[in-house]
């Protein structure tokens, strides 16, 4: 009787260990299979010809994804230029200025915004922002600026909620000390609160960037997907994610491998971003 109870406890423990290990197993599988499919082409064609190559014609042996790397970078920076100031202002307003009622109303609203599927953002971008750009700025409307705008709105919830948490966790005594020295509210925010919440705010920007660079369906719908480096805000472009999603369904042979190579590059960029974000957050906690 006792032995059976002890055995059951042991059994449960090992089942839970197995469950916990499953996350590592999944991560390993994802790495193994994306790298396994994506790396051979790097060896066959050469890293330089893929990463720095300008021409993408996978059925004719050209696997250059440099324009897509640049495009991914541009839309991400564009999204940040739009999302970061708006998101940070919103977070500052929420943590420092808004009343309790406003907070109760705004926080869930922002979280709901985070829950809206990206395809819906993409669709609204096509229907409203693309024509707006076409009519007032010119070009086809499927452009760097439209994509940046939609991605900028999409990353708002990430930036707002993480910056908000960072701002709220600044000790109250800092505010009181600053106010006691005769600083106005904005001086306190600008000189005391933002510097102390700096690493959390930066982490929110980086996680926002991660979301923007990884976004796929919305980008395909708005970016125009042209195979060259955009030279103006109104040029169409194709991102790394878009490249995979546009061609995966029908690609075979080296063409399919090239899409996995695109995935490898994307994965490395995301990992570096996540590492920086985690590093920033951990340093904040250590402080």
């Amino acid at each position: 009787m006792i032995d059976r109870a002890v055995l059951k406890e042991q059994f449960v423990k090992w089942v839970l260990v197995a469950f916990a290990l499953s996350s590592l197993l999944f991560l390993f599988l994802i790495f193994a299979f994306i790298l396994g499919e994506g790396l051979p082409l790097f060896l066959k064609v050469g890293v330089k010809k893929i990463i720095l190559g300008m021409k993408w014609a996978p059925t004719k042996g050209y696997f250059g994804i440099f324009p897509m790397i640049i495009s991914s970078f541009l839309v991400t920076v564009g999204a940040l230029v739009i999302g970061a100031p708006l998101g940070l202002s919103c977070a500052i307003y929420l943590s420092e200025y808004s009343g309790k009622r406003m907070k109760i109303l705004l926080k869930p609203a922002i979280e709901l915004l985070a829950g809206i599927p990206s395809v819906v953002f993409g669709f609204l971008g096509v229907v409203y922002i693309v024509p707006l750009v076409r009519n007032y700025l010119g070009g086809s409307g499927f452009s760097l600026i439209s994509t940046s705008l939609v991605l900028g709105i999409m990353i708002l919830p990430t930036i707002i909620s993480i910056s908000f948490d960072a701002l709220v966790s600044v000790p109250k005594t800092y505010r009181e000390a600053s106010a006691a020295m005769g600083a106005t509210k904005w001086q306190t925010i600008y000189k005391v609160i933002i510097p102390s919440a700096k690493s959390g705010i930066l982490a929110s920007f980086i996680l926002g960037m991660g979301r923007a660079i990884g976004e796929t369906m919305a980008v395909i719908m708005i970016a125009g997907n042209a195979l060259k480096i955009p030279t103006s805000l109104l040029d169409p472009l194709r991102t790394l994610t878009g490249n995979i999603a546009l061609e995966l369904a029908y690609a075979t042979g080296d063409h399919r491998l090239a899409l996995f190579s695109t995935g490898v590059v994307l994965m490395i960029i995301i990992m570096v971003l996540n590492y920086i974000a985690n590093f920033g957050i951990k340093r904040k906690i250590a402080k």
Partner: peptide
């Protein structure tokens, strides 16, 4: 670390993995 990494992977890479695996 495994959990955090999984959380950071964009959905298109999950698609890529699910497709090949």
């Amino acid at each position: 670390f495994g959990v955090e990494s999984l959380a950071g992977i964009p959905s298109i890479l999950y698609g890529l993995f699910g497709f090949i695996f």
